[in-house]
Amino acid sequence: MGKRILVTDDALFMRVTLKNILTQHGYEVVGEATNGRESVEMYKNLKPDLVTMDITMPEMDGISAVREIKKIDPNARIVMVTAMGQKNLVVEAIQAGAKDFIVKPFQPERVIESVQKLLGN
């Protein structure tokens, strides 16, 4: 049974791309959230092993969502996947509890390397 991952991005294209990369490497994408609020709700219900999180999204941004998820589960493993690579955002995301920060565009290997490091092979 593959490890279970929740993908969070407002862009359909990015959700499809991440899902393809992850499923091709044996991971199971158990949910696709389109904003931070949805991601928090889905985290409660699905209890995934890992979450990918965009930053700029409607309703609730990714960094606020990381804080909310960490309140529910301090051990949550969250990887930021975003086009916004400013130092202040990286610092803010890591302080909020994200474990890694991937800047778009990315090579598929970069995502897999990060997920493997956090979940073990």
């Binding site: 862009a11 990015m14 700029t56 975003t82 086009a83 916004m84 690579g85 800047v103 778009k104 565009p105």
Partner: peptide, 11 residues
Amino acid sequence: IAELGNMITGN
């Protein structure tokens, strides 16, 4: 296409 704009502008 939108994501392309998002990535260029974000970077």
